[in-house]
């Protein structure tokens, strides 16, 4: 890291302000009014693609490169367990153990 202590504080301030602004933008601009029905229908489907994209990019992308690693296998196992209705904490623990074991072996 090339940043000094003061610069890191500036970064933290910047992160706090930009995150707060992004989170405030929707509620402030759209406001407490009813939106047209088709719009609501699209919004009700917004979570699935956003979350899926977050998962596949964190598991299969390394910067701008597509890559498979030990974590890919671990997360895959965690996903299967969650689909089998295993509690989150158990599925998460299994994913961590498999990922760590594969890394230790390779």
């Amino acid at each position: 890291m090339t940043l000094g202590t003061t610069e890191v504080w500036l970064l933290i301030l910047g992160l706090a302000v930009t995150t707060a602004l992004v989170k405030a933008a929707g509620p402030v601009l759209v406001g407490g009014r009813e939106l047209p029905r088709p719009f609501m229908r699209v919004l009700s489907f917004a979570a699935a693609p956003l979350l899926t994209a977050l998962v596949v990019t964190s598991v299969l992308a390394d910067g701008r490169r597509l890559a498979v690693g030990a974590d890919t296998v671990g997360v895959l196992l965690g996903t299967v367990l969650l689909l089998l209705r295993v509690p989150l904490m158990v599925a998460a623990a299994a994913a961590v153990v498999v990922t760590a074991t594969l890394r230790a072996l390779t």
């Binding site: 979350l51 964190s58 030990a70 974590d71 965690g78 989150l88 961590v96 498999v98």
Partner: peptide, 16 residues
């Protein structure tokens, strides 16, 4: 080394 990077995606799969 402890495989903790696998937690982040699993967290989101649980929501999904």
């Amino acid at each position: 080394r402890w495989g903790l990077d696998a937690l982040f995606p699993v967290f989101f799969v649980a929501i999904l």
